[in-house]
Design a protein around this nucleic acid. Structure first.
Lengths: 144, 144
DNA sequence: TCGTCTCTTGACGTTTACGTCAACGTCAAG
DNA sequence: CTTGACGTTGACGTAAACGTCAAGAGACGA
């Protein structure tokens, strides 16, 4: 077993509202993500207590969403994130290598998306240049 | 009026199926995009004829979608794309400058998305490294 | 002329990612 | 002890982006 430092059992915690307000989502969204297996807050009675882990995951979730990842896609990455330092489950070498392979696919996918994004950015720049050029044309027409 | 070169009136054209198959979408999608004002194929009788312009726009649409742009967002960019070299409509300097300003916002938005994407890519790399490290640990455990 | 193909326009169904109630528990302040 | 403020679980509604029929028009080879 790798030397794991047991958390002091009580780090910072958030209520639904606190976490929702801090990261700019609704409580409904948090409960929805929990139902989808993306978050797993503790319970005090019936009430949810979100830990730093949930906080981190939510940041990652929102980040992924902003450039078009679906919740299932995001969940897959989060689960891999768990899998690794929790000892890769009963993860022998085979598990780990297939995990690495899958991560390679994911990386390729993300890089493809970034290429698309960059190309679109380039297009936008082209339009800007077109606008500027047109402006110059107007100036010249005026000065004649 | 800027010197416009009238297209030879007949460049390459596609039927729905041809265009759909070439870019990997369904005909339904093409008609949907048309209804949303993203494409505007010619008509021969009741039948659609997609031109190079439609082809180009569809490429841009699909590109934008891949990293999370909504159809309204994409449409806005496409319309700007038109607006510029079609003389910016009745676009005086004011129109052009506000257009450039809007394009600046869009560029900032896209760059923010790319930052999120890059951060996510970095996270994925971190997980990969974790996997590799774990693999090395297993090797060491074996050799003892 | 008869299928067969491909096209057309509705119109309703589906999935994702939540929004929006309703109805109820609970806990501290007044 | 009641009143909010905050929490909970359903359950249904909704917007975006198409999917999936249904029913019919037009062309085209046998």
């Amino acid at each position: 077993m790798s030397a794991q430092v047991k958390e002091p059992l009580s780090g910072p915690v958030w209520t639904v509202r606190e976490l929702a307000d801090e990261l700019g989502v609704t409580t409904r969204t948090l409960r929805f993500y929990e139902a989808e297996g993306l978050l797993a807050p503790l319970r005090v009675g019936t009430s949810r207590r979100y830990t730093a882990r949930d906080h981190t995951r939510l940041v990652l979730i929102l980040r992924g969403k902003r450039f078009g990842m679906s919740l299932p896609e995001i969940r897959e990455i989060l689960e891999m994130y768990d899998g690794v330092d929790s000892g890769a489950a009963t993860g022998e070498r085979a598990q780990l290598t297939s995990l690495i392979e899958r991560l390679g696919q994911i990386r390729a996918d993300l890089q493809a998306r970034r290429d698309d994004l960059d190309r679109t950015l380039a297009e936008v720049e082209t339009v800007v240049l077109g606008c500027r050029r047109r402006l110059v044309e107007l100036e010249e027409e005026d000065q004649r």
